[in-house]
């Protein structure tokens, strides 16, 4: 499925942070967003995935085609690794968590409560969730935080497999993942001009 974003304007708090964001992400492609902290990458990703309405612009793909993974993994400490994953797979109406556990080498940990995992293992479980959603477009916000080199390799392998199956991925990350087919988009160019930065409050000025 192709994702085409046209002239998107997104807001945080009551401030416009990015405006005129346009890009196309074909199926099988990956797009990496770059930009300094606070530029609005997270806001942009949340807006595209449908969590907050954009002020302006259009997103071609419906909200049902996105799988969003933010800073928090949404894990329950008292549920086991397998139970956490099974919950999400039944929410998205899919069976089988075996391959997802396998892809992030979580099978040996399947019975352990998620609260007993290390930060990196939690992150791996959070990313394994993407595999059980079955959605074509992955939206990832800093997916590699607290992952070691091996885990990053697992993640890259999972992304590759997803792209190979016709999916696509949109991510904000600072490290070089070594995914050759990924394009890089610097969002600094879309920074909202300071003069008109307060769309909601303009009427009050």
């Amino acid at each position: 499925m192709e994702l085409r974003v046209t002239d998107l304007t997104v807001t945080r708090g009551m401030l416009r942070v990015l405006c005129g964001v346009s890009f196309t992400l074909a199926s099988g492609g990956a797009l990496i967003l770059r930009g300094p902290n606070g530029i609005g990458k997270t806001t942009l990703l949340r807006s595209i995935s449908g969590l907050q309405p954009p002020l302006d612009g259009s997103i071609s793909a419906p909200a049902e085609s996105f799988a969003y993974a933010g800073h928090a993994d949404g894990l329950k400490a008292t549920l086991s690794v397998a139970e956490n994953l099974e919950f999400w797979s039944s929410i998205f109406g899919r069976g089988g968590v075996g391959t997802a556990l396998e892809a992030f080498e979580l099978t040996p940990l399947a019975a352990r409560p998620a609260g007993m995992l290390s930060a990196g293992q939690k992150r791996r479980l959070g990313l394994a969730r993407l595999l059980v959603t079955g959605r074509p477009i992955w939206i990832l916000d800093e997916p590699t935080v607290s992952l070691d080199a091996d885990a990053v390799a697992m993640f890259v392998a999972a992304i590759r497999a997803h792209l190979g199956a016709g999916g696509s991925a949109l991510m904000a990350t600072h490290i070089d993942l070594g995914i050759a087919e990924a394009r890089v988009l610097d969002v600094t160019q879309f920074r909202a001009p300071a003069s008109g930065a307060f769309e909601f409050d303009e009427a009050f000025l």
Binding site: R46, S49, L51, F66, A67, D73, G74, L75, W88
Partner: peptide
């Protein structure tokens, strides 16, 4: 823990 964001999507 972010579950609500994920449930919303």
């Amino acid at each position: 823990d972010g579950s609500l964001d994920l449930l919303a999507t």
